[in-house]
Amino acid sequence: MTQRVDLATLLDRLAIDELITRYAVALDDSDWAAYRELFTADGRADYRDAGGVAGRPGEVADWLAAAMRPFPVRQHLIVNRRVTIEDLGGYPGDTAEALADYLNPMRPGAGDDVVSGGRYAFALARTDDGWRLRTVVVHERWRRARGVLSAE
């Protein structure tokens, strides 16, 4: 692999990391327009494992807006990102996959905190506008609400 290919792969990894960070910020800031823009035209999101819905980004964003409304304070921490970029014989391709663990503390207007943790599975594609999410699937592993812990 040449230094030029190594640099291209590094730049792709940085762009993918930035995209995942923008995803978390859009959720935390209730920026549903920004959320929609993170996806490819045929993108999909699946929150069913966490008690949510699956569908096109616009539909899911509408559901998220309603579901997150009772939690004005929230923070998605997305960590341990493992990115695999398509390998075209030593050159980076136009698709990638990423697995990342999350911790999501939320505070309702009044009452006990809700905290959940799990793993995101992202499928990504390089587009004319840069890297975008093709799919996001949430795999919730545990949730604590009102002092009660539930696990998968």
Rank of each mutant, 00 (worst) to 15 (best):
M1K: 05
T2Y: 08
T2H: 12
T2E: 10
R4H: 09
D6E: 14
T9A: 15
R13N: 15
D17Q: 15
D17M: 11
L19R: 15
T21H: 15
Y23I: 03
Y23N: 00
A24D: 02
A24K: 02
V25R: 15
V25D: 02
A26C: 02
D28E: 13
S30R: 13
S30L: 09
D31Y: 10
D31L: 12
W32Y: 15
R36V: 14
E37T: 14
A41H: 14
D42H: 13
D42W: 08
R44V: 11
A45T: 01
A45K: 00
A45G: 01
D46K: 04
D46M: 02
G52D: 11
G55R: 09
P57C: 03
P57M: 05
E59G: 14
D62C: 05
W63Y: 10
L64V: 06
L64G: 03
L64Y: 04
L64S: 06
A65S: 06
A66H: 07
P70G: 05
P70Y: 05
V73Y: 08
R74C: 06
Q75L: 12
Q75R: 11
Q75A: 10
H76T: 08
H76E: 09
L77C: 01
V79Q: 11
N80T: 10
N80P: 00
V83T: 14
T84C: 00
I85Q: 06
E86N: 00
E86L: 04
G90A: 03
Y91I: 00
P92H: 06
P92E: 09
G93D: 11
A96T: 08
A96S: 04
A96R: 08
D101H: 11
L103A: 07
N104M: 10
A110K: 13
D113S: 12
V115N: 07
V115G: 04
G117N: 06
G117R: 12
G117H: 10
R119S: 05
R119D: 03
R119N: 03
Y120M: 03
L124T: 09
L124K: 04
L124M: 12
A125Y: 06
A125I: 04
R126W: 08
R126Y: 05
T127W: 08
D128K: 12
W131S: 07
W131L: 11
R132Q: 08
R132S: 02
L133M: 15
R134S: 13
R134W: 00
T135C: 12
V137D: 08
V137W: 01
H139E: 14
E140C: 07
R141Q: 13
R143Q: 14
R144N: 00
R144E: 13
A145I: 01
R146L: 04
R146M: 02
G147Q: 02
V148A: 12
V148N: 03
A151D: 03
A151M: 07
E152C: 03
